[in-house]
């Protein structure tokens, strides 16, 4: 009897498993990855003990920009500091930077109540201010604190004002989004809601999170927003979400400051996995906040408690080509191409 029962049970289990596998495999196969901790951004005296710096990636050169206090610090392909600028400039408080057209660097600063956008040369020496032109009335107070450059367009965001503006390389207004409108958030909450994170996926959709609403969002250029996430501590749920990026496989990676993990969803917004977690090991995370990802699917994680920026490599099941022998290559290449 007992045997029989046991058998029944186990075959039912197998059947169940098969059903689950069948259902899941078409989606799960693609984009599944394992992550491994590579290193933390450092200079010759060791790891940079920053708390929650802002990040940007120079996709062409595989360099990382770290914006901290009044410095823009540039790290090469193997995570070593190669150059820094900003502190001695009279441009105001440096808020954000990104690689611009050609060798240019775009810089966003804040001075005397205004955000200023600058085109700088590769050493960070300002060449010209880029004045925003043609902003509709709705954006007349727009004071951005984040910046992305992609394909000739400049994406600016004010996380406090919940506004995003896209302009041409010369500052001419192209498009603007008020996230209260776009997301349908009650006007009464204006001032009590900010967004976090700011990045683009491959298709040019804008990614951001709203921590107090426990939501991650994908905003397409036609103004449609896909918003997902549920509050909670269980895997796949959100505690306090922060930065968000998309990898080359279309997965969405969302940092959670409280959970101390990165929560991963596939392109259909299905939860895949979490990694990180608070702890002392190099691969652990303390309050992961801003995220950036490079073209080699290395993810940069900005953290608190002086943990600086940890870099993880994502390796995918379905493509050995991606990120192959990256470590070695970049070690050799890690030159001083900017200095």
């Amino acid at each position: 009897m007992a045997n029989c029962n046991g058998k029944k049970y186990s075959s039912a289990l197998v059947l169940n498993l098969m059903v689950i596998l069948c259902c899941l495999s078409p989606v799960l196969g693609e984009g599944q990855f394992t992550e491994s901790y590579l290193y933390s951004l450092s200079n010759f005296s060791g790891l940079l003990p920053y708390n929650w710096p802002t990040l940007a990636i120079d996709e062409e050169r595989h360099e990382a920009f770290v914006i901290y206090q009044n410095d823009v610090v540039i790290f090469n392909d193997s995570g070593m500091e190669v150059y820094r600028f900003g502190d001695d400039m009279d441009l105001g408080h440096v808020l954000a930077a990104d690689a611009g057209q050609g060798d240019d660097i775009l810089l966003l600063t804040y001075k005397e109540g205004r955000s200023l956008l600058w085109r700088c040369n590769y050493r960070g020496e300002p060449l010209a201010e880029i004045a925003l032109a043609g902003l509709p009335a709705q954006f007349s107070d727009f004071t951005p604190n984040r910046l992305i450059y992609r394909d000739g367009q400049i994406y600016l965001a004010s996380q406090n004002q919940m506004q995003i503006v896209i302009c041409a390389g010369d500052g001419t207004f192209i498009e603007g989004f008020d996230l209260f409108e776009v997301c349908g958030i009650d006007e009464e909450k204006r001032g009590n809601i900010n967004f976090s994170g700011f990045s683009l996926d491959k298709e040019g959709n804008i990614l951001f999170t709203i921590p107090t609403l426990f939501k991650a969002n994908i905003l397409s250029r036609n103004g449609m927003v896909r918003s997902f996430g549920k509050s909670g501590g269980a895997p796949g749920r959100f505690n306090i979400v922060a930065g968000m990026v998309a990898d080359s496989h279309g997965n969405y990676l969302v940092a959670d400051k409280l959970k101390c993990a990165i929560i991963v969803f596939d392109q259909d917004l299905k939860f895949i996995k979490e990694f990180g977690y608070r702890g002392p090991k190099p691969g652990n995370m303390i309050g992961p906040s801003d995220l950036a990802i490079d073209k080699k699917d290395r993810i940069y994680v900005s953290q608190g408690r002086g943990k600086g920026v940890s870099v993880f490599r994502l390796e995918y099941r379905d493509s050995a080509a991606h990120g192959d022998s990256l470590g070695k290559l970049s070690q050799i290449k890690g030159g001083m191409n900017r200095v």
């Binding site: 997301c183 809601i193 107090t212 896909r226 909670g232 959100f238 409280l258 608070r278």
Partner: peptide
């Protein structure tokens, strides 16, 4: 589509969504 209809800002004068401060299922050192 949209995030309307969610709770108020956060504490709204009382106890907020527990998940804003407690993480029930995450390993913590």
């Amino acid at each position: 589509v949209g995030v309307a209809g969610s709770a108020l800002a956060f504490h709204s004068g009382g106890v907020a969504n527990c998940a804003g401060c407690h993480s029930m299922h995450s390993p913590a050192e």
